[in-house]
Design a protein around this nucleic acid. Sequence first.
DNA 1: CGGAGGTTTGACGTAGATCAATTTGTGTGG
DNA 2: CCACACAAATTGATCTACGTCAAACCTCCG
Lengths: 248, 248
Amino acid sequence: MAPRDAIRPALRDAMMTDPCIGCGGRLAGLCQPLDTSALDEISSESERVTQSARTVLFREGDPAVRAFSIGAGIVKLSRLLSDGKQQVVGFRFAGDIVGYGTGKTYPYDAELLTGASFCRIERSRLDTLLRRHPVMERRLLDMCLQELAATQDQLVTVGRRSAEARVASFLLGLEEAYRRRGAVPDPLPMPMTRSDIGDFLGLTLETVSRSLSHFKKQKWIEEPAHQKLRLSDRAMLTELAEGMVQDL
Amino acid sequence: MAPRDAIRPALRDAMMTDPCIGCGGRLAGLCQPLDTSALDEISSESERVTQSARTVLFREGDPAVRAFSIGAGIVKLSRLLSDGKQQVVGFRFAGDIVGYGTGKTYPYDAELLTGASFCRIERSRLDTLLRRHPVMERRLLDMCLQELAATQDQLVTVGRRSAEARVASFLLGLEEAYRRRGAVPDPLPMPMTRSDIGDFLGLTLETVSRSLSHFKKQKWIEEPAHQKLRLSDRAMLTELAEGMVQDL
DNA sequence: CGGAGGTTTGACGTAGATCAATTTGTGTGG
DNA sequence: CCACACAAATTGATCTACGTCAAACCTCCG
């Protein structure tokens, strides 16, 4: 399955970094409930970074010294099994926090699927901030609880649904992810490969491809361009995802 | 799959409830880091309850008005799909919190697998307590992060491993759960049915049964009594779980 | 324009689901 | 206390959804 990409030439890309100021810069999702003095404090503690697609933020097992708050872009979180198979544990979008946990090391790889900008902050500094601003900690707790619920959903999908139901569920979930952070772009950008999707859903890339082909043939979806997607028959996809119908 | 048990006669069992006083009574896991004055406050806010096996704490969709802190016993968390299949989202043990989340309603059923005692507290009161005691909130965040990591693990197991690997992984995980809260009882109590296990692992009860039979035949485990389990060859089970070996 | 990584499609094999029959264990009522 | 009824577990015989292997085909980028 999707072999660990051997240090791709992506590093050629510029990596910009500067102090984390202004709007989107300030640990986006986390800081919503904060007042301006606190925001200033945070700006000085974190730095804003922009990196290009395919960059690896960190690898499973690396010492978890910093956390990332996504300003824009999509991040893939995945774990590698000893037999080379990969499980994608989730995708993260603007507003999400990546790399903050209890363990001493990161429990998964984090890789950019698109160019992305985000805030980077030392774990220890973030912990201090959290101690100083309980509202912020509260917000983090809520985000964590939501993430937990989403992961449990995913468990249901992977554990009990048919291949096509999983794919339909993924498509709807992708749209939902965009919806939750504002407007849904019309052709939905879908930067993940079939292999990424398969590894997320517990399927092979071939099965994902077959399902998508089938959906296209039935006009339930369109792919107006590469990595662009339009859900033409949401109702049908929903029924499929729920397992109310096997095919037709 | 495991049909929703139609209001079983389990309600005959006595349900004892009295103010939540003393040691284990006080929202066990959550309150570890608290001082005694805070503990007193909490005792008055929550009540201690003991109930028998098979009792349902709440159902998916019920308004999430209270949370539960397990003092002793095992709780099964599961979601029911529209087609009648069930996915067990996790098992919870002494020290865990059940039923606290962001949603207005519970996202899963919670059912006792054993007789259990726990503390019950109104969600709104718990929220107040958390606001008043940041250490407590911090503790809850940590518990939530751990739970998230565990659920992601489970996703890997269900998504990418063979049937026997999943079962082996479950057995080791069960033991680990006991280990984390103190001593591991020698014959491990395993109150869940094959169906529960299957629904947890994304397998049928038959497949679980076959795997366990195979393990017994190979002397990797023993069942000295019904619902009692001994892991005789942990090393082998570990290799199996990791997928380093398919059979032998 | 060439080459690599991604995608599609087909033919075939298999792990695990499904269906079914039997055994074992357990709470209930006479 | 025993026997009955019912739930859980085991085991076997099939069936099938999806994985595996393989061969084109696209599409982007250098």
